[in-house]
């Protein structure tokens, strides 16, 4: 019975490679990231979950991208097993009105921007050094403090970080 259900599910929803041509479920806004107990810290909270901005330019890192990259470089620990990977990590997250970041999500693309995978310990390490970035300044929009979404990209060639 379960197998039958599974087969039906795959037949109904398994053709997701062309998102534009299938009926999709949308969040209220593209990129809304609700709490997921399987990967999010339950202690991380938003100031107003009903109004999280999608205006990435309003969230800045102290010292700019340069300072952020310097931190990533300083914390990155190369391992020979990483050398198989070339591509881009795109890490999305929220910066709440208290300058705390959370709800990290990641996309891994190859050099042609096709979906790919990376060695598991590299993925864990990239996520970890991204989470260590702690100088985010929350969005102030129309004079008010806001939670907001932001993303960063980390580019690599043969397991080495590439500067912007």
């Amino acid at each position: 019975m379960y197998l039958l259900l599974l087969v039906t599910w795959v037949l109904l929803f398994g053709h997701c490679s062309t998102p534009s041509r299938t009926i999709q479920e949308y969040q209220d806004q593209i990129g809304d990231t609700p709490f997921d107990p399987s990967r999010d810290n339950p202690e991380y909270t938003l100031c107003d979950s009903t109004n999280v901005l999608h205006k990435r330019a309003y969230i800045q890192y102290t010292g700019g991208i340069k300072a952020m990259e310097e931190e990533l470089f300083a914390n990155y620990e190369y391992q020979p097993s990483y050398s198989t990977f070339s591509g881009t990590f795109i890490i999305r997250f929220v910066v709440n009105c208290r300058n705390e970041a959370g709800r990290y999500r990641m996309q891994i693309l190859d050099e042609k921007f096709q979906k790919t995978t990376a060695p598991k310990n590299l993925v864990t390490h990239i996520l970890s050094i991204s989470k260590n970035l702690n100088k985010w300044n929350h969005a102030v929009y129309k004079g008010k403090d806001h939670d907001g979404y932001r993303f960063i990209t980390i580019k690599m060639e043969n397991g080495q970080l590439i500067k912007k």
Partner: peptide, 27 residues
Amino acid sequence: GPKFAWAYYQKSVPYFKRGFLYEGLQL
């Protein structure tokens, strides 16, 4: 109208702006 290009383009924009590069590119 699957041959109407502007719809794909317009639909792609928020994906690019919000870090969904892959999804944006497919459109």
